[in-house]
Design a protein around this nucleic acid. Sequence first.
DNA 1: TCATAACGATGACAGATGTAGTCGATTCGC
DNA 2: GCGAATCGACTACATCTGTCATCGTTATGA
Lengths: 121, 121
Amino acid sequence: MTERISEAEWQVMEILWAHGPLTAQAAAAQLAATAWTLATVKTLLSRLAAKGAVTTTEDGRRFLYAPAVARADIAAGESRRLVDRLFGGRATPLVAHLAERGELSNADIAELEALIRELKQ
Amino acid sequence: MTERISEAEWQVMEILWAHGPLTAQAAAAQLAATAWTLATVKTLLSRLAAKGAVTTTEDGRRFLYAPAVARADIAAGESRRLVDRLFGGRATPLVAHLAERGELSNADIAELEALIRELKQ
DNA sequence: TCATAACGATGACAGATGTAGTCGATTCGC
DNA sequence: GCGAATCGACTACATCTGTCATCGTTATGA
């Protein structure tokens, strides 16, 4: 079930998650930043449909594509994979790592602190 | 420079990071868990050498393969990519996410708390 | 010395991925 | 009514990835 979603496909999913059901045309328009042709977007949508990541509903002669999986679920899976692979499954080393590399701003740290406080209840 | 390292290649790198320079033979032995043949391991080592991720030093007729990149650097790159892609570049949502999904144990949270305290100095 | 073992290099091949063209059918504007 | 636009389906093709076999060469051991 949990077919992986490739990076290009992910970009298409982002559009669908952000802007409800869309036609291929409309999705391509939203993806203007990628400079993909309509054909490319159609291919990606087909592949996503084939792997069950989007649903299609007929709308006259064309399809409306909508996400069939929750973004949070995919994000969870990918996060888990990365944390498993890079940090032995522990989240703390990830945070420590980001911190060490100066990837966390003071605001981030404050935010994390608040989050931790909340989690402790 | 920063060529991506595939998942299979990553497993080979782990072995090299863990056990200094190794011959292909020795690396394959360490990778017994994968059930890869020696030929497969050799291919992966070659590809890693081709992309500059490992260095080779001649040892008689064969090579000793050693990592040419730091694990932390690769981990940083991959983490950043994921956080960018999934959480708009912010680490906090990642942690919040892991927490929400119950991916963080109490011990993790305590650890994170200590880490935050440290970061605040 | 001579078969054999081991080495790196190279070739192979299927599946995934990125990217796009083409085609038969349909609809829409005029 | 009819040509143009548009749709999804199908085809294409280069690259990457996972996985492995084979080859020419060299060292090793009997």
